[in-house]
Design a protein around this nucleic acid. Sequence first.
DNA 1: AATTCCAATGCAAACGTTTGCGGAAATATT
DNA 2: AATATTTCCGCAAACGTTTGCATTGGAATT
Lengths: 330, 330
Amino acid sequence: MKSQATLKKIAEHLNLSISTVSRALKDHPDVAGETIRRVKDLANLLNYEPNAFAVNLRQKHSNIYAIIVPELAGFFYNSFIDAVEEEAQQRGYNIMVLQTREDPAIEENNLKLCRYNHVAGIFVAITRYTNDFTPFLKTMDTEIPIVFFDKVPEESGFPSVSIADEEMGALAAEKILKSGKSKVLAILGNQALSITHRREAGFKSVTEKNTHISLSCAYCENETQAFDTIMKMPAESLKDLAVFCMSDELLCGVMQGFYERKVSIPGDVGVLAMSNGFFPRLFNPPISYVETSGYQLGKLSFTCMVDLIGGVEYLSEVMLRGGYIENSSL
Amino acid sequence: MKSQATLKKIAEHLNLSISTVSRALKDHPDVAGETIRRVKDLANLLNYEPNAFAVNLRQKHSNIYAIIVPELAGFFYNSFIDAVEEEAQQRGYNIMVLQTREDPAIEENNLKLCRYNHVAGIFVAITRYTNDFTPFLKTMDTEIPIVFFDKVPEESGFPSVSIADEEMGALAAEKILKSGKSKVLAILGNQALSITHRREAGFKSVTEKNTHISLSCAYCENETQAFDTIMKMPAESLKDLAVFCMSDELLCGVMQGFYERKVSIPGDVGVLAMSNGFFPRLFNPPISYVETSGYQLGKLSFTCMVDLIGGVEYLSEVMLRGGYIENSSL
DNA sequence: AATTCCAATGCAAACGTTTGCGGAAATATT
DNA sequence: AATATTTCCGCAAACGTTTGCATTGGAATT
């Protein structure tokens, strides 16, 4: 039923003008206290709720921030979203989450949706296949501020917030060396991704200094490939080995492989991951990890967004550091 | 910068009326082919994109569906979202995801946002504390169709799509009995939730028929409580025992407990869960489970939504069945 | 008593679309 | 050659707000 209540209807009921009603509802000093009361009472009675379309059309922007991520699955982005949502709520903004499924075409479509809806701002972690940034430039042209996070464009110049991947990679390598294993295997992600480059570079910067250990690397697109990598390893190499997994997804694959092959951790093989902290606890033994906090990344990204909207000109590329959480896998 | 291109500007450039431009862009038969071409060319050149605010204001609804869930973390809702998104994309709709963090106040606020933005429809899994449904009724009053899924209101009368919890609970019990263990422990969720009631009822309907086994139940709010439950069990009870976990979250807690206490699975203790299938693989050994597919639930919910919009009057409460996936934990 | 001032309200334009209706020119039908 | 039909286009209203600028009546100031 219920043709929605509008300012117009309230105005007619009360023999007031639309403008007065509008102002009354926002406690504008120009309108008499008595009138404000009457208007608000009736508005309540009629369940009046402003029409966002009209409001936004008038003010030319909405109070919604968009977060675009490759995948919702996993726990990293969720904590990021939590953080951003907290900040947004406080300021009366809302969050809309979009996922790209690692598909640049969907990513482009999502950006379009954001433009179409004039969102207040966009937080985006790009897909692993994104290399054409014109859709982003096009969006920025419409004055919609964009903050890249986690998966950020390789070439700089965009406002971005990410993990200090090199440093964290180096930290991981140091811990791995301390384990005293003679062989090291690094399970890395897609080679096309800059995040892989950076973590790898950091990791190698440390291992290369120690010539007595032998390092091998495997690049895995996903959990299954990580699993296969472990399954295909000759048995003798599964001794005196330390494995570094640069992501949760890879860790999951690796651990399934180790379970399957019944290797003893940390006796024969030591394991260290980079993670948000959710998955490492699930394994037996719990996995030691270098922490990459999505939550903190979210908080940081939000302040970056606020800066951007405030007109800060220097395009900052912020880096976030995390610590080492020791469990019993190394 | 960039004052956005509008119909008006295009019209002025081409000495046409706004209406003709509008129609041209949607290939209206009333406008000449030649004109259509000219309009579209210029629109492209100027990067014209319609203003959603204006469009929506005019048509009184948006092309966005909202999905409201208690938590994004975990994998169940993600697969649900995937499914709904697939269907929506095909029809030119988009999805906006909102989370309530199990807080009815946030839930109410999210509903408000949906009303405010006149979304095309809402899919909602209610929080575990939701018992006042007036915000939902209020929303339905505004003609926004709502489909409840997974966590649905206890009292019927709302269009809802959920797992056939009783049946699945019974199936789980049957499998557990087949394991031949003499003791059974059921790790159940919050007692206030109808989902808990239903799964428990189904489970008990089977176990009660077999008087020779001893069943105990533990109600756990979260992973930690499940973990604690296991940790507090006397050692002697960890023999000849089968454990049923009604959710992934609880399974995670339980398995950490078992790891910690070094119980042999399935030798001493058998484990069976209800799950989407993601987590069970991660454990050692992989856990057998009764499957509850979020993906299928999503597909089903969408058709339910379409029905609802199509004006189907009978308020259906659809149930989804799943099979048993045998791994090596029981 | 005339002037100024302020408090309270209304007018009207604007935001960018969509769409029913009507009109003019061109074409087809007798 | 007159009428009927079709083809193409524009007018104007409507969607629900917000807001700069009047306007009104009455109180305060001279």
